[in-house]
Simulated scan of single mutants.
Amino acid sequence: MKHALLLFALIALQACDFSKRIDTAAAVKEMKARQVKRVLPQDIVNQVDSWGQEIQAKGAAKLDSATKALSISVRLGAPAELKLSFKDAKMVGIMDALDYSISQKQDIPPSIQKNTAGDSLYYFYPSETGKITVLGFAKNIVIQNMDRPLIK
């Protein structure tokens, strides 16, 4: 009986192939890298706000490089002209409101608006000449380019 048990243990040990061991530290690191991350809507808005402020502060030089890197659509002009470039009813309404605010000589702070579908965010900021710059960010591109530490 002892010999049979010993023979069985030797056969089982021989069947184990230790040459194909997995590096557990590397496996854990890869699993964390592939883990589905949670991005909150507020995280996306905060990221668009920080990019918009940075582009607004640095001007045209930053605008050109950011437009290419982040696939940002840029529209510049008077709100009445910009209204014609939008098909979304919500964005047309926002352009009407901006046009009215400019005609009343009201101070217009930078703002972020979502389109009706919610798949794009727009960062608006005025210039001294009464024109509005509209930066359009696609939500999926924002998520792909977010700072990784911000993603939980």
Rank of each mutant, 00 (worst) to 15 (best):
E30L: 07
L7Y: 04
G77A: 11
A26H: 02
H3T: 07
R21C: 02
Y100R: 14
S127P: 00
S85A: 12
V36F: 10
G52E: 12
L7K: 10
S101L: 01
N145G: 14
E81P: 00
K90T: 02
T67P: 01
I44A: 04
I108Y: 10
A60N: 13
A57C: 02
G130C: 00
P79R: 02
K87V: 10
A60M: 06
G52T: 12
Q106P: 00
Q144D: 14
S71R: 07
D64R: 15
D49I: 08
W51V: 02
Q106I: 02
I102E: 00
Q56D: 03
R34V: 01
Y123K: 06
L121A: 12
K62A: 15
I44C: 03
N115T: 11
I143H: 03
A78S: 04
A69P: 00
Q113L: 03
R148N: 04
K2I: 04
P79W: 03
A97Q: 05
F86H: 05
Q113H: 14
Q56R: 15
L84T: 14
K114P: 00
R34M: 06
Q53E: 03
A9K: 02
A66M: 14
P109S: 15
A138M: 06
F8A: 15
L84S: 12
R34K: 08
S85Q: 14
E81H: 06
I141E: 13
T129L: 10
V142S: 09
V36K: 14
H3I: 06
L98M: 07
P149Q: 11
F18L: 06
I132T: 05
L70W: 15
A4R: 09
D119L: 05
K105L: 04
F137P: 01
L76Q: 13
I112H: 12
L150P: 00
N145R: 15
A78D: 03
A78F: 11
M95L: 11
K139I: 05
P149I: 02
L10T: 14
L6H: 10
K29Q: 13
L84G: 05
S120D: 03
D23M: 01
P109C: 05
M1Q: 06
S85H: 11
A97K: 09
P126D: 09
Y125T: 08
L13M: 12
D107I: 11
T24E: 09
R21Y: 01
K20V: 06
L6W: 09
L6Y: 10
S101F: 01
Y122Q: 02
S85N: 07
A9E: 01
Q144L: 13
L76R: 13
A26K: 07
K62T: 10
R21K: 07
Q56N: 08
Q56W: 04
I108C: 06
Q113C: 05
G52K: 13
L150E: 08
I55L: 12
S73F: 05
R38M: 08
L82S: 05
A117N: 12
Q144V: 02
I141P: 00
A60E: 15
Y123I: 08
